[in-house]
């Protein structure tokens, strides 16, 4: 520090302690509620000190929320989003920065138009589209009277029914959340900072574009990929609206959705203790990621800028 100023330092500590407390208070009460019995948690007002049911409630929440299954689903979905988005974005960013081709600008804009349009905005049509992704093809078939045509050719009366129903499937949960340009944008920005000499040298050596991509560009991108992966993992794990609408099968629900099932509704037992235990369980994996991989997480945040 430039000068000593104990009072200001104390004020700063006070501010930070206040900030940390603000973060912790909701979590503390979740813990308190999660450690009470169902009768205690209904007391008005709620006790301020924890009870002794914490581990029992955790266990109950784990089984009631079907968490052994839903955690696995969350992991699959979060990793699927992470891996899918990184792979897809690396490839497309490579294409638009390292190749000169006719439709480059068009491709660029097609991708970047989606940059800031989260799925929430187009949730209804996306739901329909994914409930039967083959619907556009079906309409095409209907418009072109393909069935009649085929019927005329073959002499049979034919109905063409195209179907691609992704409700309650992992692709259905993952793919729509990959459909945005954020990661592509990040990699593009990064590729633009990679020294041109590397590419020139590779070309002199007669390396193919894919070889250059694989053996030079990709290793250089690893730090960015790791950082981004953390952000995407959190993004995937914490998804709410899409899996909420999209997983009607209990066995395909994610942990956050299973947690929602634990929240008491008006016609069920007000088991807030179980709900709060479930909340603590569900936030544990992402919290661990933030705590343990903090440096990468911060880098990811700042890199992805979104």
């Amino acid at each position: 520090m430039v000068e000593r100023s104990p009072i200001l330092n104390m004020v700063c500590h006070a501010i930070l302690i206040a900030g940390a407390l603000t973060v912790c208070v909701p979590l503390y009460f979740a813990f308190v509620a999660g450690s009470l019995t169902v009768t205690e948690v209904q007391k008005v007002p709620l006790p301020w000190l924890p009870g002794n049911q914490f581990f029992d409630n955790l266990q109950l929440a784990w089984s009631k929320g079907n968490f052994s299954r839903t955690f696995a689903n969350s992991i699959v979905v979060a990793l699927g989003i992470t891996a899918g988005k990184i792979v897809v974005s690396l490839l497309s960013a490579f294409a638009i920065t390292y190749f000169r081709f006719r439709y480059r600008m068009l491709a660029f804009w097609l991708i970047f138009v989606s940059l800031m349009l989260p799925i929430e905005v187009r949730i209804v049509p996306t739901f329909e589209a994914v409930a039967n992704a083959a619907l556009p093809l079906q309409s095409l078939a209907d418009i072109l009277h393909l069935a009649d045509l085929w019927g005329w050719i073959s002499g049979h009366d034919v109905a063409i029914t195209l179907e691609w129903n992704m409700v309650n499937t992992y692709p259905g949960l993952i793919l729509p959340l990959i459909a945005s340009a954020t990661a592509t944008f990040l990699f593009r920005q990064f590729f633009l900072t990679v020294p041109d000499e590397l590419c020139e040298a590779a070309k002199l050596d007669g390396a193919s574009p894919l070889h250059f991509f694989w053996s030079i560009l990709l290793p250089l991108s690893v730090p960015n990929m790791v950082a981004l992966a953390i952000i995407l993992f959190l993004f995937g794990w914490n998804q709410y609206l899409w899996p909420l609408l999209f997983t009607t099968d209990k066995d395909m629900a994610t942990a956050v959705i299973a947690l929602k099932g634990l929240i008491p509704r008006s016609d069920s037992e007000p088991a807030w203790n179980i709900a709060m235990s479930g909340a603590l369980l569900t936030m544990l994996p992402p919290a661990l990621v933030v705590l343990l991989l903090q440096r990468w997480f911060i880098k990811g945040l700042i890199d992805s800028s979104k």
Partner: peptide
């Protein structure tokens, strides 16, 4: 009247509802 033939092009992810001939008829209730 021609024969009625339905082509169902079920790409991946379609619910596999029709199994081999079952003794019991199964119906869903949501």
């Amino acid at each position: 009247m021609g024969r009625k033939v339905a082509f169902i092009a079920a790409l991946f992810g379609a619910l596999a509802l029709v199994g081999p001939a079952q003794a019991r008829v199964e119906v869903q209730w949501w």
